[in-house]
């Protein structure tokens, strides 16, 4: 039974309220509320609503860094000019989350902190090598630290956040002009889809040769995952059929999907390969 509701106006207020026993950060509520409703998790005794914290609501481009507040909505990511220019794959992923009703509530921070292997924002942010700013209550006011996104996810529903920490901001560098980027997710139905698998690719090429590559996957491992093996298969090479084959083989090897109600392990491996192959073939055509 939830007894307390705190509408924090500042990060300080939020972390202070979070230090109460049984308190939970509440942002969009789109993941939390259905779980409360179905009694899958107990309701917290206190809810700390951080949507009123102004600094968590902004998208900024400063000193060459894009910073996205943790409470920025998916519908804002989808349409914001900075995001569309600097990270179109993030805008695309946001646009493909659920439906307008959810996109108007779900926050990017919530999507990450919920730590679903299927979190749609995670794959683009892995590709962007984002850094996450977290805050907690310190001895001299607010204590902050950075967590690279690659170290953020620990398992389904589990993150590197320590008790009392709040994710405040997500920072990344814009994708360089001329780079190729793609993100796609696969579900069994076009609408309202939870990814059976998702894949993203960012490539930097000089005269056709791949000099930088990032690959990431969703829904095919306990956490959203960077594809280091697939990346290695590409670096220094031209995107020939053979290289694409090698990359796809590497990808299928480095993921560890499970069989669940949505798809089998084998099919997920299959789909990751298809999505990746299609992206690379598309890139080869540019």
């Amino acid at each position: 039974m939830t007894k307390t509701y705190v509408a924090a106006q500042t990060v300080e207020e939020a972390v202070r309220a979070l230090s109460q026993t049984g308190a939970t950060i509440f942002a969009g509520g789109t993941d939390l509320m259905p779980r409360w409703f179905r009694n899958l998790v107990p309701k917290p005794t206190a809810v700390v609503d951080i949507k009123g914290v102004e600094q968590l609501r902004s998208i900024k481009l400063a000193d060459g860094d894009v910073s996205v507040g943790a409470c920025v909505l998916m519908s804002e990511l989808e349409t914001h000019s900075i995001i569309r220019a600097a990270a179109p794959i993030l805008a695309e992923a946001a646009a493909r989350i659920a439906c307008p009703q959810i996109r108007n509530r779900a926050t990017v921070g919530g999507n990450l902190c919920n730590a679903s292997p299927a979190a749609d924002a995670a794959v683009p942010l892995l590709l962007l090598d984002a850094v996450l700013d977290v805050a907690s209550s310190g001895s001299k006011g607010l204590a902050t630290r950075e967590i690279p996104i690659a170290e953020f996810f620990r398992g389904p529903g589990s993150t590197a956040l320590r008790p009392g920490e709040v994710l405040t901001c997500i920072r990344f560098k814009p994708l360089p002009t001329g780079s190729f980027c793609a993100w796609d997710k696969f579900g069994t139905r076009p609408a309202m889809e939870i990814a059976v698998a998702s894949v993203g690719v960012v490539l930097h090429r000089v005269e056709g040769r791949v000099v930088g590559a990032r690959v990431a996957y969703g829904s095919v491992a306990p956490i959203p995952l960077r594809g280091h093996q697939a990346e290695s298969a590409l670096i220094g090479r031209l995107l020939s059929d053979e290289v694409v084959d090698l990359c796809v083989t590497a990808a299928r090897k480095e993921i560890s999907p499970i069989t669940d109600v949505r798809a089998s392990e084998g099919y997920r491996r299959e789909i990751v390969g298809v999505l990746l192959r299609r992206m690379l073939e598309n890139a080869a055509g540019f």
């Binding site: 179905r38 076009p190 609408a191 109600v261 949505r262």
Partner: peptide, 22 residues
């Protein structure tokens, strides 16, 4: 989906109806 007598997907999240998109 029923396995061992139990329902695996008792929600609209995993029981897929046709939507406007299909």
């Amino acid at each position: 989906k029923v396995q061992g007598g139990r329902v695996l997907n008792p929600t609209f999240t995993d029981y897929k109806l046709v939507t406007t998109r299909e």
